[in-house]
Every structure is written in C-alpha cells, then in structure tokens.
Design a protein around this nucleic acid. Sequence first.
RNA 1: UCAGCUGGCCGGAUGACUGCUUGUCUCUUGUUAUAAGAGAUUAAGAGGAAAGUCCGGGCUCCAGGGAAACAGGAUGCCGGGGAAAUCCCGGCGAGGGAGGUUUUCAUGCUUGCAUGAAGCUGAACCUUAGGGAAAGUGCCGCAGAAAGGAUACCGCCUGGCGAUGCCAGGUAAGGGUGAAAGGGUGCGGUAAGAGCGCACCGCGCAUCUUGUAAAAGAUGCGGCAGGGUAAACCCCAUCCGGAGCAAAACCAAAUAGGGAUGUCUCGAGCAAAUUCUUUGAAUUUGUUUGGCGUGUGUUUCCUCACUUCAUCCGGGUUGGUUGCUUGAGCUUGAUGGUAACAUUAAGUCUAGAUGAAUGGUCAUCAGUGUGCGUUUUUUACGCAUGCUACAGAACCCGGCUUAUAGGCCAGCUGGCAUA
RNA 2: UGGGGCGUGGCCAAGCGGUAAGGCAGCGGCUUUUGAUGCCGAAGAGCGUAGGUUCGAAUCCUACCGCCCCAG
Length: 165
Amino acid sequence: MSFSLTKLAMIKKRHEFLAVKSGASKVGSSSSSSFGSSWGTAGFLLQACLREDQKNLQEDKRSEARFGVTVTNNTIRKMISAPQKGKNPKKVNEKRGPVSVLRNKMRRRLKEALRQIAPELARPGVDYVIIGRQACLSIDYADLLKDLEKSFKKVHRRIISSGTD
RNA sequence: UCAGCUGGCCGGAUGACUGCUUGUCUCUUGUUAUAAGAGAUUAAGAGGAAAGUCCGGGCUCCAGGGAAACAGGAUGCCGGGGAAAUCCCGGCGAGGGAGGUUUUCAUGCUUGCAUGAAGCUGAACCUUAGGGAAAGUGCCGCAGAAAGGAUACCGCCUGGCGAUGCCAGGUAAGGGUGAAAGGGUGCGGUAAGAGCGCACCGCGCAUCUUGUAAAAGAUGCGGCAGGGUAAACCCCAUCCGGAGCAAAACCAAAUAGGGAUGUCUCGAGCAAAUUCUUUGAAUUUGUUUGGCGUGUGUUUCCUCACUUCAUCCGGGUUGGUUGCUUGAGCUUGAUGGUAACAUUAAGUCUAGAUGAAUGGUCAUCAGUGUGCGUUUUUUACGCAUGCUACAGAACCCGGCUUAUAGGCCAGCUGGCAUA
RNA sequence: UGGGGCGUGGCCAAGCGGUAAGGCAGCGGCUUUUGAUGCCGAAGAGCGUAGGUUCGAAUCCUACCGCCCCAG
C-alpha cells in the first residue's frame, strides 16, 4: 500500500443511514428515483446507494464515497442466547451477555476489513452501509475479506445496470 | 507437610507488519462560526470491577436556599475514622461453628466400652436493619377450654345427692392443642395443688467494682410482674429542598416573522403646576411609601426582582465551542495510631471519544489440562492438541453489590512426621 | 447515558401476612345426523431467581435476572 490513504469519510447521522437503507431496497420497483442495491453474506449485509445530489454529475466529478458500519444490539443478544443454549441452558437465563464487548468487536472487525478493501473498490458518490450479522465473529478474517470484495462487485453491477438506463 | 479459614496483590509477557484517537512541532489552505488538510514524533491511550445504578458528595440550573411549621422520606448497640454515606475500623451483646465433655437418656453386647439423641462448653473464624413492646392501636388463621391483666375439655381433690352418674366448690401437678399456654429443675408442703416456702438457674430493681461507652462481674433485695410481632401502624432521637452533563452557558447560520398583555385603572403622604364659587376643593405631573399579585412539595415570614409603554414569552433545525479532566489525585518514605486513618517530606501529571478512538493479522515464550513416547516409579524430557476469564471509559470522585480463567504472597487454627 | 414502571398455569389476569379466585384456550363426557352454541367434569402454578424478617411470605426487606416506557 504505497499510496497514502486519505481517511475514509464516515456516515454519522441516523437519517443518512435510513436514506441508504430505503434507497437500497427501492431499486427493483422504482423507475429511477434512486440508484441502490444490497447484498448479504453470512457475516454481514452490504447496502449501497448513489446519493441524491451526486447522481446527475459525471463520475470523475463526484465527491468521494462514504461508509457507515452499524451493529444492532438485538443481533448480539440473539447470538449470545442461541449457541449457548445447547451448552448450558440454565446459565443463559441467569446471566447477561457481554453485549457491548461483542458489538464493538464486530464493528471494529468490519471497519478493518472495509479499510483494506474499500479504497480499491468503492465508487465515488456512493454511500455504503455495512450491517453486522451473527456469523461475523465466527468466520475467518480472510473469508470475510473475500466476501466483502465479492459483495462490492455484486452491488456495483446492479447500480451500474440500473443507473445507465 | 496436609487440611480448614481469613486478608491482600496480579489480571499473561515480548516482538513484527499495518491502522485509529488525542497532544506537541512544522508546512499549506482558509471560514458564517469553530478551523481544516498533509507530514513528523523514542509523547500518551480502558478497569478491578470501567458493570448494576443501590447510597453519598462535587459541579450546573431552578431569584436568595435565608428562617419556621406541616407533610413526606431516610437512618438507628457503643467508641473512633471520614467531606458524607444502606461507608470503613475496633469493641459489646445475640446466633452459628470442627471438636471436647467425670452430665442425662436410649440401644447393643465383648459389662465397661461403642453408637445415637439431648444438655453444657466451644479453635481459627463467620453472620448480625441490633433504639423503644409498662405511650397507644392492630394482628396472632386452623387447632385448642383458653392466644393475653384470660380460662378449665379430659383430669386430680373435697362436699352433697335421686349414685357405674349428676350437681356445687377448690386446683392448674399431669394429659391433650399449638410456632407460642402467664418462669425452669429439685425438695418441702397440701384434701389435691399452687413461688405457698426454700435451694440453684433465669428475670427485674438497687448499690459497688472495671471500662470513655455499649456492657461485664460481684453483692443485696424482690417471689415473678402485662408472651410474640416495630423488614405492622407508630413513638423517640438524628438527618434531608428539587432536577440532572440529554444539567447548563455561548457562537454562527438558516427558518418563522408566531403568541400574550396593554396603552393606567388601587390607597396614603409630600412637592410643583393649572382651574374654580379661593385659609378650601378638583385635575395633572413628579417622587416616596404601602397594598394586591407572580417567583422551586404546602403554608407563613424576611430579602430581592417584576407589576408596563412598549414589554414579555415562545416554537425550533443544523454545525461548532465551553462544560471535559489537576483531583477529598497518584507513587515512595517517615512519624503517630491495635486499626480505619491522619500529619509530613520528596517525586510525578497518567484516556478524553461523541454512529463513539484504544484495533486487525501473526510469531515466539509463559502458565495449565489431556493424550502418546522415552526413562526403574515419583520425577524429568520430547511431541501433538485444547484452554488463558469477567468484561469496554462517556462529567468527575468516595463506597456498596454483582461477575471473574488462573496465579502469587502473608497470617491464624488443627492434625501428622522429625529434631 | 439518565429517569420511571412491570414480572402469578399456554394467554389475560385477581389476591398483597394464614396454604393462589376467575375468564379464554386445550382435554374428557352429555346434547346434535355432524359441527358451532350450551351444560357437566377433571387436569395443569407454588407466584422471575436467591437470601433474610416472621410460628408462617405470592404479599414485608435486601441483592440479582429479564422485559417495557420516557427524555436528543
């Protein structure tokens, strides 16, 4: 990595996350209002959407891509309760899980993967959101990278096909 | 050396590559405001619980938190520590505790031992919301005669009669009920009984001794008095205002140009002016004072502010700054103290994020479990493999509680062995 | 992060010191040609978990666990 990375621009506001989510799910039905797509794997779900103010510009004039990583508490709770129940069902009812530790760990892992992959694959003007899933911590890091690469390509294929109408 | 108990400490180590946040320095750019970007750096970067949010503070706002009463809430053996606390230390009382026992009972037989139960005692140590039950009220289901200044079912005793029983009286030893039956054991006493009398134990009161005190011990007196429950209401003593950093203050941009009150209208005194029917009255203006009203649970009081001519109130989005980390701080030593802790000297600055940094990928070592092999067994060595916890700062401190792989150290008690 | 509240059969719940009422669902029977309705009957809880106070706790106290709501 000889070229010095500029820092990844992050998505920070709740409404921006929601915009990506709605844009990504709308693409199949709507005519052309927003260009987005989503692709899920065992470890995570990738959502992408071309921003409203950027979509009429040429590709080289667009500003850089933005990224958001999010993990909800519910997925962590399910992850704690599901596999342990086989082992020791009594203890699960009495004990609280280490929710925040696992949540932060998952987010850090996804962020690290994003940092390695994103500068090569991300397209300008597009917002990306990665949502953690239960298997995220159990699969190997190398596989996680492969999955992320693959899903970036899948997402891009859909955006381009729908955006070049 | 083994077992038990208690207290304290640590919370894997080193290295490589590659990232993040903050600080500092350099350079560049520049805004509405704050600043932003790049590079450098032998600078720093989660905990003992950061957790639960159970207590106590600091800090901020509620005009002052000032006074009193009421309401509401909290605490509760004694002494000390502490800013304070449902905190800590030391002691007292009560309860538990391996074991011991020349006590009592039961069983067994090897007839003086074993076992079991009860009583007494009791190592280290553990637990303890532990004021007041003669200030008052409530409650004590079922059972039982009776559940609290009581009462008599079966009984026991005496007397009478119409006599295998009934009636009247005495009694509370025995039986029975219950968690609990108005002191316990023994002897005397008696018609039968009873603190009726006596001894011991318990209890209450008084005095003395020890102790700062809680309390302990001794002596004497009292024949015994009305049980339990205050984590039921309550009484007594002490303490307590509310909300919380999403508190709060500020900057800039943009939006909305919103709503309310009102144009004077209360009393008294003083001064001035004007008018009139002139030692008086009315009006206007100014000023002083008072009243009414508003201001955090209620009420009252005090201070303060407002009670008008234009003033007050508000909705509300985005970005940023401050609050924000030097503090009841940390480390080491000395002195005092049984200890908690205090005093003092020297040194030291040690996270500050905000969709939220402190990471990711490995390597070696360490600890430990399992399996295999070598070795005469313990042991040691080698190989393989598994495990290395609980858990992540969000304004900051002091405590408590809960979670926690594994390891280390110290002390106390008991057993065994050796000298 | 802070502030409130609630846990009782499968579900909805009453009870708040004296051995847990009721309804719905489910089960068995009767009624009906069959089903619904109706009637009768039985079963199913130890009160979120663990300690304590009490003779006795679903209830009182303490500590944990889980869930829900409010505040930008």
